[in-house]
Design a protein around this nucleic acid. Sequence first.
DNA 1: CCAGAAAGTCAACGACTGTTGACTTTGCGT
DNA 2: ACGCAAAGTCAACAGTCGTTGACTTTCTGG
Lengths: 200, 200
Amino acid sequence: MEAYRNLPKHRKANSRSRATTRERILHAAVERFARASYEQTGLRDIAADAGVDVAYVHRSFGSKERLFAEAVRAAVQPIDILPGAKDIGTLLATHVIDKPAKNPHGLDIIIRSFSSPEAAPVVREFIVNTFVEPLSRQLNHPAETRATLIGALLIGIAILREVLHSPGLTQPNPDDLKRLITRTIDELMQTTAGETTSRS
Amino acid sequence: MEAYRNLPKHRKANSRSRATTRERILHAAVERFARASYEQTGLRDIAADAGVDVAYVHRSFGSKERLFAEAVRAAVQPIDILPGAKDIGTLLATHVIDKPAKNPHGLDIIIRSFSSPEAAPVVREFIVNTFVEPLSRQLNHPAETRATLIGALLIGIAILREVLHSPGLTQPNPDDLKRLITRTIDELMQTTAGETTSRS
DNA sequence: CCAGAAAGTCAACGACTGTTGACTTTGCGT
DNA sequence: ACGCAAAGTCAACAGTCGTTGACTTTCTGG
């Protein structure tokens, strides 16, 4: 595509800008990967956004796959699940509903590119390391399964809301939506295998 | 002129096979789209599987996008949610956990290609028409939202289990897993803002 | 039997992709 | 001031993609 950010000549009159340029490329990559899948995103798009040549993008990061991995690492800061927090459900529900409005990255990169053979390992590793594993420590028995199910819910919500724009998740009042999600997460966290704890 | 003995495979010696060939192509398309994303799947792959030329695949369906739409329509039979069913949670949990083992299609096509701009409308339309809308009729107040959230959970589970192979969803006993999912869906269906409206 | 439509093939176009070798420009150390 | 390495560019390769025009083969209706 054409990006009109193209200052033709010396953008920085002064000294060594390697780190700066790298950051600019990385930032452009994050932005692109958050809005389109791994395959749909071309290195030339990223290069244009960053105001450099394609070749330099490739040379700076070694390969598209490595650039993607760095973009994931840079974009998605692990959700800080405090060891003692008791309103995890609210925290996560807020995160998935409010966050994407503020800054478009985060979950977006993950949900758009998990299907790429090259990107999937990166995505999977990230999910496990920064979400499932920390969250598992707060849960009881099938802890990893519970944590993964909660992750599944959040990912599904993000997809239907951010990518497919399903009216069922875009139209309702955000607070009502968050309340419903919170309740579901709490249920997923607290219920034990044999009995129903929320029984009345 | 007998130099061209090269007709390698006349698979069907006999008569008009247009419908049959179309079905073979469609079947191959379903199979491919279920295992890789819209972008990753090439018409040449599908053509090879079906034993025809690429050009004929394209000509038979008009475009890749239309072939994809037909594949979705052909692969995913709407989950039959009986108007009076009361164990919908179990039905859906069983569907998402057991089905993929039996035949690999169904949800797979949807979850791999929702990110493609060309495929997304097809995917979204399908989800709404064959899942959210019928299911909504069984639920109370924020019916569409509840149905969409259930859809989100199922899609997320399918992704983490079938595509990313997250251990939290592949290792545990399927029955335990289904029980956990069923409970979550039921919660999502029945809970109201204030209390539980579970009626017999 | 024979015309003609349908079924199917072949080769190619044009655009796009990630990647690479060779090149030029820039900045710093001495 | 000079040299040299780093920063960055340029053009091209080799491959893939969906798509199309022109062709041949196969079948069927009159």
